[in-house]
């Protein structure tokens, strides 16, 4: 289907090199910056050869930032912890809510079933601020603003549709006869669900959980609106940090690296399921 002559190969190799350069260079460059001090960063022309130091990371982890104006306390590590907490709890709650619902939508034809499923899907595409702005007023009345609980609840907007629709696909792919057989053996509905249906949909559930973790981690706008500094995840925290740290570019780069490292690592681990997750279960990789 393609001509494999020399010209073609050379063109293809060149195109791929450019593509890789464009998409990977920023990550590579920021990684380099995170090991440099301000002096090295500000030197022009930039140099690939420098003496790397862990100073930026040490400053971030110790929480003490040396600036010309004195020692500045930084809470970046706390933001990182918030990200872990928010993403993990949101995914856990989403699994708790979404897996049974996905099973119901896959196994039963019932009134309102498809309506609920599509309403949840539509959350994925509605403008988040439409809900968030009134919600910020409600949260103040309910005492939920700037609470982990409130944030985790709103994070369901990201995690729930994803988990629901991916896991539903996996339940649909499994033959119901296997569950029926288990029930006829004498096991209750609940045991058939937990011992048969869930293990058989296991890979799908794991994939959906990993992906919704990534999306929850990467979310920015929810916490920007509903959380103050002490509850903010890294996405919002990094932005605040840029303002606070002024010209400590190395530390900014190090903060960026720490912020994106978990999702990149998870993505590499879960790459087999990424296509399915990104398309909400419509395309299998």
């Amino acid at each position: 289907m393609e001509r494999h002559d020399g010209w073609f190969r050379a063109l293809r190799a060149m195109a791929l090199t450019l593509v890789l350069l464009f998409f990977l260079f920023p990550i590579f460059w920021i990684l380099l910056m995170s090991f440099q001090n301000n002096e090295q960063i500000l030197r022009l022309p930039p140099s690939l050869v420098f003496r790397p130091s862990l100073g930026n990371y040490i400053a971030l982890i110790s929480g003490k930032l040396q600036t010309s104006a004195g020692v500045l306390d930084i809470t970046f590590l706390h933001n990182l912890w918030n990200s872990v907490l928010l993403s993990t709890c949101s995914v856990a709650l989403s699994l708790l809510l979404g897996v049974p619902a996905a099973y119901a939508f896959a196994r039963f034809r019932f009134r309102l079933g498809e309506d609920i499923a599509f309403t949840l899907l539509s959350f994925r595409f509605a403008p988040p601020l439409l809900v968030l702005l009134p919600l910020s007023l409600y949260f103040q009345d309910l005492g939920l603003s700037n609470t982990y609980f409130g944030l985790i609840w709103v994070y369901q907007l990201i995690c729930l549709p994803l988990i629901l629709w991916i896991v539903r696909g996996y339940f649909e792919d499994a033959s119901p006869d296997v569950e029926y057989a288990y029930r006829i053996d004498g096991h209750s509905w609940w045991r058939a669900f937990t011992r048969i249906a869930i293990p058989l949909a296991g890979p799908g559930i794991a994939a959906a959980a990993l992906l919704s973790f990534i999306f929850a981690w990467n979310n920015f706008v929810f916490a920007l609106i509903l959380a103050s500094a002490d509850k903010q995840p890294v996405t919002v925290g990094a932005l605040a940090f840029v303002t606070a740290s002024g010209i400590q570019y190395g530390q900014i780069a190090a903060a960026i690296v720490l912020s994106i490292l978990p999702t990149l690592a998870l993505a590499l681990y879960a790459q087999r399921w990424l296509v399915e997750g990104l398309s909400l279960g419509a395309v299998k990789g």
């Binding site: 029926y180 057989a181 096991h187 209750s188 509905w189 058989l200």
Partner: peptide, 28 residues
């Protein structure tokens, strides 16, 4: 429910539990 009817059933497509051994299948 089917679990309380005291029946045994064999399915056209066997419907074995893929994540269990034959022994665990029969023991269920």
């Amino acid at each position: 429910g089917p679990e309380a009817r005291d029946i045994g059933m064999a399915f056209q497509n066997f419907a074995l539990y893929p994540h269990m051994t034959a022994r665990e299948n029969i023991a269920s």
